[in-house]
């Protein structure tokens, strides 16, 4: 039963507020931006926050506020895309392992042990490094390193569900395996998937920002927030707003995603054995 008190805390409300603001900002960015986020203006470079430029301008004179608005699109879309892919892949593999057991399970567990054997960021850096920076290798790196966490959890959940009488009943009346998995097992794990997906998103953003910071992630001139942070590196001593504003945005986004995930978890009272961070 859903524990609704969690949704009444200030933390949750704040988090939802931040998330909606960011999402709306991302969707409506073309309507909201006061300046073209890609257009340099050399005469007005490196300005501090003020009336015309709400967040100031960057080293090329581009309006930081407009860039932040546009940047939310990249950040959120990328995180959403990679998390979704990881959830789908992880669920498919986890269900397979948990439902069929026997040798598919053994193989999948061995595979996930292997993939878990290499620390996440190291693996990501290696993949992005080997295949060259860019969106495809960034997404590949994120998905390859994150499906394992999911598949393990989903496998345990599937095992639990498989023991339930209603599934046994379905098997008895001759329901096909595929039907059972798609129509009965997956929907029953929906809340877990939602929570895991939210948490995954915050982790993805952290990973993407780390890779972008190292120059292995999102490529210019995309105004991704972490790219903006690494662009600010040269200038932040005299113009700290260049670092603090995009950095603060990343922080706020991850904070609210974590908070929402956490609240959902408490509300649905779902517990995972694995440690996810």
């Amino acid at each position: 039963m859903i524990n609704k008190t969690v949704f009444k805390t200030i933390k949750f409300k704040l988090a939802v507020l931040i998330l909606t603001t960011i999402i709306i900002a991302g969707i409506a960015a073309p309507l909201l931006v006061p300046f073209n986020p890609f257009q340099p203006d050399i005469l007005h470079r490196l300005q501090f926050p003020g009336a015309t430029h709400l967040f100031g301008t960057d080293s090329l004179g581009r309006d930081l506020f407009s860039r932040i608005l546009f940047g939310s699109r990249y950040t959120i879309l990328l995180a959403l895309l990679s998390s979704l892919a990881a959830v789908l892949l992880g669920t498919a593999i986890g269900c397979l392992a948990g439902y069929y057991g026997k040798w598919p399970d053994t193989i999948i567990m061995l595979l996930s042990n292997i993939f878990q054997g290499i620390p996440g960021i190291c693996f990501m850096v290696a993949i992005a490094g080997f295949f060259g920076p860019g969106l495809p290798s960034l997404l590949t790196a994120l998905i390859i390193t994150s499906w394992v966490d999911f598949s393990r959890i989903i496998r345990t959940e599937t095992l639990k569900l498989k023991g339930e009488p209603f599934i046994e009943g379905l098997i008895c009346i001759g329901c096909s395996n595929r039907r059972i998995i798609i129509n009965h097992i997956v929907p029953n794990m929906f809340s877990s998937l939602l929570i895991l997906g939210t948490m995954r998103m915050s982790r993805s953003i952290l990973s993407i920002s780390a890779l972008s910071f190292l120059g292995l992630g999102v490529q210019p001139p995309a105004p991704d927030w972490s790219v903006m942070v690494s662009d600010a590196l040269v200038y932040y001593r005299s113009y700290p707003h260049l670092l603090l504003i995009p950095g603060g945005c990343i922080l706020a986004l991850i904070y609210s995603l974590n908070a929402v995930g956490e609240s959902l978890r408490e509300a649905f009272d779902v517990r995972f054995n694995e440690v996810t961070r």
Binding site: A210, L243, I254, A259
Partner: peptide, 22 residues
């Protein structure tokens, strides 16, 4: 805890360098 959990490591490192070092 919640805030540090949400801070990218590089941001933390940069701030530490800036404040403690410089």
């Amino acid at each position: 805890f919640d805030i540090f959990l949400a801070t990218p490591r590089f941001l933390l490192a940069l701030l530490l360098i800036f404040v403690m070092g410089e």
